[in-house]
Simulated scan of single mutants.
Amino acid sequence: MSTDSSEAIMNTSHIDTSHTDSKATQQVALVSGASSGIGLELTRLLLSKGYHVIALNRSEFENNEDNQDIHQALQEGRIRIYRADLSDFQQLRTALEQIKVQEQRTDIVFNNAGNSLSQLTLSPQGRELHFELMTVVPYIITMELLPLLSAGQGGTVIHTSSAAFDYLQSFDVDELDHPTTFRKLIGPYASSKLALTLWARAASSSLAAQNVMIRSVDPGGNNTLRKNKPSGLPLFARVWMKWFMAHPSTGASRLYNGAVGEYRQQTGILLKKEKPVEPRFIEKAEAVWEKVDHIYRQEYLPMS
């Protein structure tokens, strides 16, 4: 992965800057990983509901017939892209600083970016990549964007969780950043999604004191396979996903409903099939929160 922080850039050359006149009343949502899968369908859904979307992506939106609506929204300034390899703290910091300068507020932050890898891979900071991207980075995004959330209407953070961690037999907080074994889907991927859900639970009271609500949402089984893209799913899971899992718009709807639906006044909860459930290993939530907060304060903040 590239560590060139210059890649974290905002695409502004094609944006109609007239959106700035309506920022005071316009509903705004940030979506990480907005360019494909559930994130792409969530972006479409938010646009249909009248939101402007801040897209925090590693990749551009594909320029094809299926994405004509997306590119129309880009031209109109209803989507604003900030690009970075989110697992690289230098690029992430550059993108977040640009967001804080260019954007006045956001009403919802959807921490959705993720990946499923086929082998043990380390981030530029030297930690297991699932954990960095899907547990630590959402914490950094949330902490850094608290001023924008506070300036929004009913600041809300939504995590894309997963039912994969239901299959974990054990959960060791100390091994999250450097696991001793690797298994597809129900290894570091599942552990990282659980850790994400647990720190949200532990941090919820602190965030509520700052008028920010946080919830984790399992989007359910969605077909997010992409042509010519490697997958970290076992073969049986890829076959099952291709033929039997729902279109990503299903997961997008669950994330959206998790933000604005029946449980919008509750914080720290995990929603599965749009109903609250207790996550596993809840007794380790505080330890996970302490771990990600330590990384944020000891590694990320000193970069400033």
Rank of each mutant, 00 (worst) to 15 (best):
G37Y: 02
I269V: 15
E286F: 00
M10N: 10
A151C: 10
A203V: 03
T180P: 03
P179G: 10
N57Q: 07
G77L: 05
S191Q: 09
V136K: 05
D4G: 09
S123K: 01
L168P: 05
T43A: 11
D85M: 06
T20W: 13
S87K: 01
I140P: 01
K227W: 08
M10D: 12
R44A: 05
L42N: 02
D293F: 01
R83Y: 15
T12S: 12
T17Q: 13
N111G: 09
N111K: 08
K275W: 02
Q153K: 10
E41Y: 03
G261N: 11
L117I: 11
S116G: 07
P188S: 13
Q266Y: 05
A55Y: 00
Q119M: 09
E62M: 05
E7Q: 15
I108K: 11
N57D: 12
E76R: 09
H71R: 14
A24F: 11
R297M: 06
K227T: 11
F110Q: 09
I269C: 11
P188I: 00
V288A: 07
Q27R: 15
I38R: 02
D69N: 10
L40H: 04
W243E: 05
Y139N: 04
V157P: 10
R183E: 14
P276I: 06
P279M: 05
T12C: 08
